[in-house]
């Protein structure tokens, strides 16, 4: 862009789920709308559109953000990961997604992509207790489940038993890394 000349639209380049994306976007386009309406990545849901509900959570350079509070132009040059990017290419479920299914951590599913994106970026070591899991999840609203089953799903995905303790012989906790490539699980 021209130095010191305000613009209405901007050419941006970013990577979304591992693929390069180049678009000319109006400067007032939100990242959530870019993803859904320009890129047809409708796994990212928009609920409140003012940063409260968490349904639109995606990863920006590996860190969770509200895509409804991010102008698309400010994601220029960044790596964006949506729920499509953490889902295996063969249509199966990643272990974190499977834990949500198995623990009945969703009903209508509207909030689920946001929960998944918050969790996939979280470090289990930073959330050793149920209380700290609840604090982590407080940025995502769910109107169906009452959260209990979501917490259970997190415990299972992170290799803890249903009382929240580390399971004997559990594998490496899931969800401790951020998979950015499409089809990575």
């Amino acid at each position: 862009m021209n130095d010191l000349e305000p613009v209405d639209a901007l050419d941006i380049e970013l990577r979304v789920n591992g693929s390069a994306v180049r678009r000319r976007v109006p400067v007032r386009r939100l990242l959530s709308d870019l993803l859904r309406d320009d890129l047809s990545l409708t796994g990212t849901h928009v609920g409140c559109e003012h940063g409260v509900c968490g349904a639109c959570t995606v990863l920006l350079d590996g860190q969770p953000i509200r895509s409804c509070l991010q102008l698309a132009v400010t994601a220029d040059g960044c790596e964006v990961t949506t729920v499509e990017g953490i889902t295996p290419a063969d249509g199966s479920l990643s272990p974190l997604q499977a834990a949500f299914r198995d623990a009945h951590g969703l009903q209508c599913g509207f909030c689920t992509p946001g929960f998944l994106m918050t969790l996939v970026a979280a470090d289990p070591a930073e959330h050793p207790t149920d209380g700290s899991i609840d604090a982590l999840l407080s940025g995502n609203l769910c109107r169906c489940t009452g959260y209990q089953n979501i917490r259970t799903a997190v415990r299972r995905a992170w290799g803890r038993d249903d009382e929240g303790n580390a399971s004997a012989g559990s594998d490496t906790p899931l969800g401790s890394g951020t998979s950015s490539g499409s089809g990575a699980s």
Binding site: M1, D3, L4, E5, P6, V7, D8, L10, P26, V27, R28, R29, L30, D33, R36, D37, S40, T42, E49, C68, L71, V73
Partner: peptide, 24 residues
């Protein structure tokens, strides 16, 4: 664009009122 993503409020989906943007 797939028909099911055809938006009902116009192609230029925006929330904020118009502004211009500068990136020093």
């Amino acid at each position: 664009r797939p028909a099911w993503t055809g938006c009902w409020w116009g192609e230029d989906v925006v929330k904020p009122a118009p502004f211009r943007y500068l990136r020093p």
